[in-house]
């Protein structure tokens, strides 16, 4: 019975991870190849992907692995690059509240792609949600490690033209954005997210816009909360 429940959760989770599979295998291979070209063999790529599981930070870390040893800089750069994860945690506080013993691993593996799936997917009632979230996370994690390993091993043997294949992850996020747009009546939070980020991107440039965007989004959401609270009060009074 217990085993059956897990298998059911795995079966429900797997289709959602197919786009991530494509993206991670490709980006992981690219990462492994890049690491290899700097003299860091497959063992290092796999260790990094297994422990950190953070694509963009790992790419940034390549530059740190090829210059003077500076662990503090590595730490601070990672905090900067990954600051957006703070939003994912806040968004998942409620959904992950009831998880239990799997929770530390789910938080460990809350990367962009895993977040985009777990925050937007409606789990069928018959599927155990803890195991569903667990399988989404561990499948994504293994694709990333597998991709890095393949890249480290195969190196430059891959020859078909993969230019543009990394767009698969952009496509995944756009699809989730559209899906949320269709199901959510209030479009303000989505518009706030796009506008704040786009404005900050223009002002601060591609390498420095994330933290200002996060502050901007929090500020605008907080301001519009008063409006939301007032509307809610009116609606509740109307009901009474």
């Amino acid at each position: 019975m217990y085993l059956g429940e897990k298998r059911k959760a795995l079966r429900a989770a797997f289709p959602h991870t197919i786009p991530v599979f494509t993206g991670f295998i490709f980006l992981g291979i690219a990462y492994g190849i890049l690491m290899n070209s700097k003299g860091y063999g497959v063992g290092w790529s796999v260790l990094m992907s297994l422990m950190a599981f953070a694509g963009s930070a790992q790419y940034v870390a390549i530059t740190l692995l090829t210059s003077v040893f500076n662990p503090l800089l590595a730490f601070l750069m990672t905090l900067m690059v990954n600051a957006r994860h703070l939003f994912y945690g806040i968004s998942m506080l409620d959904k992950y509240k009831v998880i239990g013993k799997l929770k530390p691993y789910l938080i460990f593996g809350l990367c962009d792609e895993t977040f985009s799936i777990v925050c937007s997917t409606k789990i069928p009632e018959s599927v155990n949600q803890s195991w569903f979230y667990f399988f989404i996370t561990i499948l994504d994690h293994s694709y990333w490690v597998l991709g890095s390993a393949l890249g480290g091993l195969l190196g430059s043997m891959i020859s078909f033209n993969t230019k543009g294949l990394d767009f698969v992850l952009t496509a995944l996020f756009v699809v989730i954005f559209v899906g949320q747009w269709k199901t959510q009546k209030d479009h303000k939070p989505a518009v706030i997210g796009i506008l704040c980020s786009a404005i900050c991107l223009v002002i601060f440039g591609p390498s420095n816009f994330i933290i200002p965007s996060m502050i901007g989004i929090l500020a605008v959401l907080s301001i519009s909360r008063k409006e939301y609270a007032a509307e809610k009060e009116i609606a509740e009074e109307g009901v009474q």
């Binding site: 939003f87 994912y88 968004s91 925050c119 949320q180 939070p189 989505a190 518009v191 965007s213």
Partner: peptide, 8 residues
Amino acid sequence: LPYSAIGL
């Protein structure tokens, strides 16, 4: 926040 975060 999830909606804004996907926008970001």
